[in-house]
Write a protein that binds this DNA or RNA. Structure first.
Length: 804
RNA sequence: GCCGGGAUGGCGGAAUUGGCAGACGCACACGACUCAAAAUCGUGCGGAGUAAUCCAUGGGAGUUCGAUUCUCCCUCCCGGCACCA
């Protein structure tokens, strides 16, 4: 018979599957239980690389397995087509981003076809398609109606290289997530999403999700919920008759008696008021400090931990606990946008306050004593203990005192979040236009629903600008419109949306990508949501994964979707590294081109190899081993050759191993241990080669087990046996439990916990007989000679241990 | 600093969750086939030792008849957060 011609076989079946439409999901069908497998959709960056193969074969194996298990599986694919990198790449090449993106999608679509993935191709969508972003805009307006989308003048992250603002999530250690440049702070009026309103829901509902603990924990860290107290300090001026209060947030209300000064962030709004009312004696000094702070980037501000500050001379604060008078300062170690932008300083029990107090010679008052002497002397100061010098609260534990003291000074127990609202405006061309018209009379007016979508105009010059204005502002024909309310001259909003908004709801549109009446059919969503299994990359943990949960929760509260969480199970895959163990990069010259390997060894081989490298669900990073791929290819060739040794006669040991293998492969797939599933298949194959015989039925069952991993070769062989429907639509084999039963079992014999021999015994053999047999084993006998057995432990089917 | 996850042969990784550590694959060595090479097949392959045997799952203690698995301490690596009050 002919040899394994992967090229021919793969092309043939890819075309046939498409023609026969075998992966089209009957979304309306009620016969089978639904299962929605989602892989993060693709950014059309140019070419499919190994990472794409890895990202899509993992979920594909799962989808194929679930389909064979009898589920109605939906596994869609599309393109996250708007965005900065595409725009940057287009600029570099002097192309319009639309053309650049179009070309990439076409190339990548062709490459996707070679992967042998079981996508439902009718679900295809692109976020840059007006048919899609019409609904992105529609949702934005719904969010705005309810106050979740709002405009605010706030300090924002500005990337001087990408020339746009960024959300906090898109800044890492002070650097732009896209281009790695240092991010500046600018005060700009921007559209924001009130994600902090959902902080508690986002935090608490994590408990209901089947997600790896590491992902949940990363989101909790990002949300950063802290419990504490909000306490008011009254402020008075020594010269003016000026009285006011400043609210602070603290987790350590128990240390209130130890507060010796108050610090405000330089941006605190009260300072402007003080300057205006001329209440300060050192206005010039204060102004200088504020402008010096403004010049610093956040990175400067946080990386230089040397404390600086200026006293607000002319005002004092009163400690509400004991009436003591204290100085008030501004210092840039206090952040304007966390808590209330003001802190009470307890230098005796806070390292930062301590440092500041030392530098400016401020009082340090100890109010906590530590019973736990095991604490390090240097860090003990910040721990809980027992109150001293705290009036009636002296002697109380920190924990108890926190609530009691807060109550005593009319404070409030409250919580704070590290997460900030999501800045969604982008001063870039290639994104969904924000559907707003600015009217000098009516303000920011929503574009009426009938006028949606606001189509992104074609521009010749879409270069980003230094001045913080969007390139769209140059499209004057497009910008100048009538106000939908008053009919006067007005201007369109020229910023576009963060692409993370586009991707916050795409999985809903997959279900109904061509609907012109609504963003997705309600009945279909009801049946298919939430997503059962979401596969993606770790980089989205505190970005897309958080944003889309927020988005979905709002849709749920508005009544547009029926679930408050979009994804039940989630997994972050690892990274495929170059052969040298480094991240693949052109500069290192260690990039593996999947197309090359596929043409040489075939898609089935590449898929199998990727699955075989290690467990899929853990963020393991696996180096690509060119020899390893060849090893997997060898295996497939052996599978192919096996059709030459078909026989009529069944070997009992083969049947038994087959059923063991069914169970093993099944368990491994559900646990995403594709590597052990494949090793099980290899073990079975090794057995067949040794026996040099296999029956049709056993071979076919084996092919079914292999089918999710190597869909083409298995289909070819399956049909060779006269099957007329696809192996991928066949029923997953059922384990015959009665065959798994062993009559005899090999158990280890231990002496003092060390293995000294092996014996074969009947499964239900009496302990007495097993002991006899063990004693008669020559090697064991050697170790028992002249010794007295004190105790014996017999675990049936596993082990017998003699303690001597 | 806080939180989460890790560490097993030359390499990727197995180990039914407390019961024979190193499955499966790669690499390597030897052998068969070949004029030769490749491919293929066979054998071996954690370390030491001729062997019996001993030592080995990052290091140290502990629990246990028995620990890669559980507990405590330490080292290192990866990831998240971080002047967040």
């Amino acid at each position: 018979m002919q040899s394994y011609e992967h090229k021919e076989i793969e092309k043939k079946w890819q075309e046939a599957w498409e023609r026969e439409n075998i992966y089209k999901t009957p979304l309306q069908s009620k016969e089978k239980k639904k299962y929605y497998v989602l892989a993060e959709f693709t950014y059309p960056s140019g070419n499919l690389h190994v990472g794409h193969w890895y990202a899509f074969t993992g979920p594909d194996i799962y989808a194929r397995y679930m389909r064979m298990k009898g589920y109605n599986v939906f596994y869609p694919n599309g393109y996250d087509a708007f965005g900065l990198p595409a725009e940057n790449a287009a600029i570099e090449r002097g192309l319009n981003p639309r053309i650049w993106t179009r070309g990439n999608i076409e190339t990548m679509q062709k490459q996707f076809n070679t992967l042998g993935a079981s996508f439902d191709s009718s679900s295809m969508l692109e976020t840059c398609d007006p048919k899609y972003y019409k609904w992105t805009q529609w949702m934005f307006l719904k969010f705005k109606e309810r106050g979740f989308a709002y405009q605010a003048n706030t300090p924002v992250n500005w990337c001087p290289s990408c020339k746009t603002v960024l959300a906090n999530e898109q800044v890492h250690q002070g650097h732009c997530d896209r281009c790695d440049n240092i991010v500046e702070q600018r005060a700009m009026k921007q559209w924001m999403m009130a994600i902090t309103k959902y902080a508690d829901k986002l935090y608490d509902d994590l408990n209901n999700l089947q997600w790896p603990e590491s992902i949940k924990e990363a989101q909790r860290n990002w949300i950063g919920r802290t419990y504490g107290s909000r306490i008011s300090f009254s402020i008075s001026s020594s010269t003016k008759n000026e009285n006011n209060t400043i609210d602070i947030f603290t987790t350590r209300a128990d240390t209130l008696f130890g507060v010796t000064y108050i610090v405000l962030a330089p941006e605190h709004p009260y300072i402007t008021k003080l300057i205006e009312s001329n209440a300060l004696e050192n206005i010039i000094e204060v102004r200088e400090y504020i402008s010096a702070t403004q010049k610093k980037s956040n990175l400067d501000r946080t990386s230089n931990k040397e404390k600086t500050g200026v006293q607000l001379k002319g005002i004092i604060a009163i400690n509400p606990a004991n009436g003591g008078e204290m100085s008030v300062w501004i210092a840039d170690y206090v952040l304007a946008d966390y808590g209330t932008g003001a802190v009470m300083a307890v230098p005796a029990h806070d390292e930062r306050d301590f440092e500041f107090a030392k530098k400016y010679n401020l009082e340090i008052k100890n109010v906590i004593s530590y019973i736990n002497s095991s604490l390090d002397k240097n860090t003990a100061m910040i721990h809980d203990g027992v109150l001293v010098n705290s009036g009636e609260f002296s002697g109380m534990s920190s924990n108890e005192a926190r609530t009691k003291i807060t109550k005593h000074v009319n404070g409030k127990m409250t919580k704070m979040y590290r997460m900030r609202d999501w800045v969604l405006s982008r001063q870039r061309y290639w994104g969904t236009p924000i559907p707003i018209i600015h009217c000098s009379k009516c303000g920011a007016v929503s574009v009426p629903e009938k006028d949606l979508p606001v189509v992104l105009p074609d521009l010749d010059d879409f270069m980003p600008r230094e001045d913080g204005k969007s390139p769209l502002s140059k499209a004057t024909d497009w910008v100048n419109v009538m106000c939908p309310i008053c009919g006067e001259k007005a201007e369109r909003e020229t910023d576009t949306m963060d692409t993370f908004i586009d991707s916050s709801w795409y999985f809903l549109r997959f279900l109904d990508p061509n609907n012109a009446e609504t963003f997705s059919d309600k009945n279909i969503m009801e049946k298919w949501m939430p997503v059962d299994f979401y596969f993606g990359g770790a980089e989205h943990t505190t970005m897309h994964l958080l944003y889309s949960r927020f988005w979905h929760k709002v849709l749920f509260d508005i009544g547009l979707v029926g679930d408050n969480e979009p994804y039940l199970r989630r997994i972050n895959r690892g990274l495929i590294l170059g052969s040298d163990g480094n991240k693949m990069s052109k500069s290192k010259g260690n990039v593996i081109d999947p197309d090359e390997v596929v043409s040489k060894l075939g898609a089935d081989t590449v898929r199998m190899y990727l699955a075989f490298m290690g467990p899929y669900g853990e963020v393991g990073n696996y180096p690509w081993d060119p020899n390893g791929v060849v090893g997997v290819h060898r295996f497939l060739e052996r599978v192919w050759r096996t059709h030459n040794i078909l026989s009529k006669e069944n070997i009992p040991s083969t049947t038994k191993l087959l059923h063991k293998t069914i169970g093993h492969v099944e368990r491994s797939i559900t646990e995403l241990k594709y590597n052990t599933a494949i090793s099980g298949l290899m073990i079975f194959m090794n057995h067949i080669e040794k026996e040099k015989s296999i029956t049709h039925d056993v071979y076919k069952t084996f092919l079914q087990l292999l089918a999710p991993f190597a869909p083409h070769i298995t289909e070819e062989l399956w049909r060779m046996f006269g099957e007329t429907t696809s192996i991928h639509l066949s029923q997953w084999p059922v384990v015959d439990e009665t065959l798994l039963h062993d009559d005899e079992v090999t158990i280890a014999v231990q002496v003092n916990g060390k293995v000294r021999g092996q014996i074969v015994v009947g499964v239900r053999e009496l302990e007495k007989n097993v002991v006899d047999k063990a004693f008669n084993d020559v090697k064991v006998a050697n170790f028992l000679e002249g010794k007295k057995v004190l105790k014996q432990i017999y675990v049936p089917g596993k082990i017998i241990n003699f303690v001597v």
